[in-house]
């Protein structure tokens, strides 16, 4: 298992008041993303566990792109990967932030 952590500065604080959100499942080509609050409002921390070794550069690019596009400040994100493609990862991250914005 390769464990990666990215501490990103963000464009703004995440919306909504929901404390926690979960999207996706750990299955082939898929991933689960757990979003929690607790970081500083200008910061987003992403912890990734992936069985596919050697793709840190891709993860870095996808997470940096996510932080630049979405207001994800204050979020602590945990990813358990099942070998998802970068586009799937990007969609799941966006889906998670949207879910955090939704009222419970």
């Amino acid at each position: 298992m390769e464990n990666l952590r990215y501490e990103l500065s963000t464009t703004g604080p995440a919306g909504g008041t929901r404390a926690v959100a979960l999207v996706g499942v750990v299955a082939s080509g898929n991933l689960e993303v757990l979003l929690e609050r607790g970081e500083a409002p200008d910061r987003c921390v992403i912890d990734i566990a992936t069985p596919a070794h050697g793709f840190a550069a891709l993860w870095q690019a996808v997470t940096a792109d996510f932080a630049a596009r979405m207001a994800a400040g204050g979020l602590r994100i945990t990813i358990n990967d099942g070998g998802a493609r970068p586009d799937t990862v990007a969609l799941r991250l966006a889906q998670g932030v949207r879910l955090m914005e939704k009222p419970e």
Partner: peptide, 22 residues
């Protein structure tokens, strides 16, 4: 015991398999 409680399998990591939080 929702996913945020992180009660996942203690065994799967030994096989280099990803766990799921629930």
């Amino acid at each position: 015991l929702g996913p945020e409680r992180r009660e996942f399998s203690p065994h799967l990591g030994l096989f280099n398999l990803p766990h799921q939080l629930d």
